[in-house]
Design a protein around this nucleic acid. Structure first.
Lengths: 225, 225
DNA sequence: GCGCTGTGTGACAAGTTCGTGACCGGCGGA
DNA sequence: TCCGCCGGTCACGAACTTGTCACACAGCGC
């Protein structure tokens, strides 16, 4: 799963280095050269983690951190020049969640970002969806019928989850593409058909006469409410 | 092996700083903001070491220490503001095992915790997990089948424990990496595969057709619920 | 019936994921 | 010191997934 990171760092060289290396690690990176710019970004998007350099011109990192905390609970990783315990305590007081001291190992940094993103992400409630006689558990990643686990692929599973989350509602191919494949997927929408078929093959008692995932001609698919 | 520490400290800043730095030293940290809260934690878990700040609101550290001693023999490290010999003597009298004065060096603190934990490791409550016909005892570090003990390595054991702790749930490689290897591990996630294989070789009746630790392709591993 | 559009079906190639054996370095015990 | 165990890495092949295609088929308006 891709995590989004906001980097707040005034030195453009370091910023670019971070941007490239973290991107290579599979993270979505947004850059800000100042606290003001950062707050603008935060007004528009939410991020999984914020990476904040202490040494900023104008407002210093602590102040930026406090301002961020006023409007957002996004976890903040402070980047300190040296691991000065005074800075650390001040950073924590300002609302930071973790800190890293320069020079840092990129791998370590990205691991921390991931860990923090995972840890502070709202604990997923244990949801149980039902589709006919199927039990779908999004958090456990399982689909069972009568206690027996069905072997779905990741795509099939997501497809079923999206449909099951809104029973009765017809989801268009475009909607499903966006939800299952992501908004940056530009392929054929027939792709959905193929996966619906594969899904049916596994979950429908009679795949030729589907009852769990039904077709609404000209509209899309749905699971009966 | 990881040691568990209970921090009793009213200042949230210092508490968080301690929590994070000690965690980074590989210690499992639980926090308590007051003596009452600490006693609640102690009723539920056992810890290897208790880190107790003298300057607590309400009951002072000495009193908390005496109360702890009524029910538990877990070693206590007192944290004093200054190395006042009067405080030290009173602390030892109250049942503390060691003392550290502020400001302390984190490395030193973690070294003392380790030393004390090693010296007086308390017998932990027994927890039993089962995986198929296996009995897993996380506290004793043993896995048995029909009374016969299996010879797992530390890594294999922890891997099995993490999976067994949440039967039915699929744990991703990333999750397993974080839980077994720690979130500061930056290696290949294929490492998990290799250890799963080694684990299977030892616990599965037929390692080629695993039933105790099963693969969920594209997701991770699980032990059937 | 006819044509059009939308959907189901089987096949296929490329890519991904996973299991496996092998290797190497570090560490501790004999 | 040597030896064996353990943990981490690698390369390879098998199995599986996935996106795409061509074609068949069904519904619908005419």
């Amino acid at each position: 799963m891709s995590r989004s990171v906001l980097i707040i760092e005034d030195d453009p060289r370091i910023r670019r280095m971070l941007q490239m290396t973290l991107q290579r690690e599979g993270l979505e990176v947004t850059e800000a050269g100042s606290g003001e710019e950062a707050l603008e970004h935060l007004a528009e998007h939410t991020f999984d983690v914020i990476l904040l350099d202490l040494m900023l011109p104008g407002k210093d990192g602590f102040e930026v951190c406090r301002e961020i905390r006023k409007t957002s609970s996004t976890p903040v990783i402070m980047v300190t020049a040296r691991s000065d315990s005074h800075d650390v305590v001040a950073g924590l007081e300002a609302g930071a969640d973790d800190y890293v001291s320069k020079p840092f190992v990129v791998k370590e940094l990205s691991a921390r970002i991931r860990a923090l993103a995972r840890r502070t992400r709202a604990p997923e409630p244990r949801v149980r969806l039902t589709v006919g006689d199927l039990e779908v558990s999004p958090t456990e990643g399982t689909v069972t019928r009568g206690g027996e686990m069905l072997n779905l692929t990741r795509t099939e599973f997501r497809l079923l989850t999206e449909l099951a989350a809104e029973p009765g509602r017809v989801l268009s191919r475009e909607e499903l593409l966006e939800r299952v494949w992501g908004y940056d997927y530009f392929g054929d929408s027939r792709l959905v058909d193929v996966h619906v078929r594969r899904l049916r093959k596994k979950i429908e008692p009679d795949p030729a006469n589907p009852t769990l995932v039904t077709t609404v001609r000209g509209m899309g698919y749905r699971v009966p409410g």
